[in-house]
Computed example of a mutant assay.
Amino acid sequence: MEGTPRTRLICFSYAGGGPGPFRRWVPDVPAGVELLTVLLPGHGSRIRERPHTGWEPLVAEVTDALGPYLAEPHVLFGHSFGARLAYEVARRAEALHPGRTRRLYVAACRSPDTPQTRPYLHELSEAELRDALGVLGGVPGEVLRDDRMMRLLLPVVRAEMRLAELWGVRPGPVLGAPVTALYGRDDPVDGAAATARWPRFSRAGGEVLEIPGGHFFLDTHRPRLLDIIDARLGGG
């Protein structure tokens, strides 16, 4: 893309997910918007790296890697585990580069003060976790049935789910950017009640919006999600 983009949209995927879901966005991203994705340890070309087990080193690594982009105007989008990470990065960015984060989109993610539903998925056996992933979606059936692939994927999913499920209110700067929280109408994990309090976590407030679909509406209802993002990028 030539010149300076109108907006940079930095995206964070769900537990076990990589840049793949966001590559499918590329044809539909508006002109002037540069789409960036984050590749975490244990994913893709970093498959041999161990995933992080604590929030502080994870947020520090991602914030450092994104340093030049966080110093310029940008918006952040995260889904489920990725929404938690996007929020923590946005708070760190607020301390380093006040006002550069123009908006935070958190999808399929409870607010920090909302208790996590039980039982914890990260505590399930391998067979139970595979079954749970099949019910929730997000992992193609052919991958779930591939024992070799699942041996690689499950430790990363479990580690990131553990971070997501044990996450809550953490000390740090208050978010300055407005929040757009999105939930799936049929999401059994993080629905309307779990996301309702998100606007309280920003000095600029925010909104909570419903999208058709379940927990992985970013895959099943991508056009609707992108319409919502696009409508707000003009102000961000």
Rank of each mutant, 00 (worst) to 15 (best):
T4N: 07
P5W: 09
Y14V: 14
A15H: 02
P19A: 15
R24G: 14
V29Q: 06
P30T: 06
G32L: 04
V33K: 05
L35V: 06
L36P: 06
T37F: 10
L40I: 06
L40D: 05
P41K: 01
G44Q: 08
S45H: 09
R50T: 15
T53N: 12
G54V: 03
W55V: 14
V62Y: 04
D64H: 08
G67F: 08
P68I: 13
A71P: 02
A71V: 11
P73A: 12
P73G: 14
H74E: 10
H74S: 15
V75P: 08
V75Y: 01
F81Y: 15
F81E: 00
R84L: 09
G99E: 03
G99D: 06
R100L: 03
T101N: 13
R102M: 11
L104Q: 04
L104K: 10
L104D: 02
R110S: 03
P112F: 03
R118E: 14
L121C: 01
E126V: 08
E128S: 11
E128V: 03
L129I: 05
L133P: 08
L133G: 01
G134Y: 08
V135K: 02
V135L: 04
G141S: 10
E142C: 15
L144T: 07
D146N: 15
M150I: 06
R151W: 10
L153H: 03
V156T: 11
V157F: 07
E165W: 04
W167S: 12
G168M: 01
R170C: 09
P171R: 09
G172S: 02
G172N: 12
A181C: 13
R185H: 00
D187N: 10
V189I: 15
D190F: 14
A193S: 11
A194K: 03
T195V: 15
T195H: 10
A196I: 11
W198D: 11
S202P: 08
A204D: 13
G205K: 02
G206D: 12
L209K: 10
I211R: 05
G214V: 02
L218K: 00
T220C: 13
H221V: 01
D227H: 06
L233M: 13
G234N: 05
G236Y: 14
